[in-house]
Simulated assay, not measured.
Amino acid sequence: MSTLNKLALLLTLLLIASVAESRFLGYKKATTPAPTCFTPYGVQSGETCFSIKKKFDLSDDAHFSAINPNLNCDGLFVGQWICISGSSN
């Protein structure tokens, strides 16, 4: 086996070992538990986050935001599912 082939083999083994080691050492991305939605609601024409909160008497803005973590109130669209009751874990 030539020196160049041995070097290529050694580099390949080092790369494989480093990838495997990173998996075994627990390099994991942080995860946050997803909220649980008990009652989904489909947005109707002309509705806003404010009108929906008023319609369902949702006075706690922090809880509404927690159960709808990725909701963009400026970009609501008809048929979009939002959560009107749930657990934010």
Rank of each mutant, 00 (worst) to 15 (best):
V43C: 04
F64S: 02
T31D: 06
L25R: 11
A30W: 02
W81V: 09
V78D: 15
D74M: 03
T31K: 14
S88T: 01
L13P: 06
T32Y: 03
A34P: 01
E21D: 10
L7F: 11
H63S: 08
S22V: 00
C37M: 04
K29Q: 07
K29M: 01
L4V: 14
F24L: 12
S85T: 04
H63K: 14
W81Q: 12
N72K: 13
A66K: 09
G46H: 07
L15H: 04
T39R: 04
R23V: 00
K29N: 04
D60N: 15
D57V: 06
Q80K: 10
C73K: 02
A8L: 13
K29P: 01
A17C: 10
A17I: 08
C37A: 09
A30M: 04
Q80R: 09
A17H: 05
F64D: 01
T36R: 14
Q44V: 11
A8H: 13
L9G: 05
W81K: 12
F64T: 00
T12G: 15
G46K: 13
Q44W: 08
I84A: 00
L10Q: 02
A66E: 01
P35R: 01
G79V: 08
G79H: 12
A62M: 08
A66I: 05
K55F: 03
I16N: 12
P33Q: 09
A20P: 00
A17E: 08
S22I: 02
Y41G: 13
E47D: 06
T3L: 01
R23T: 00
F64A: 03
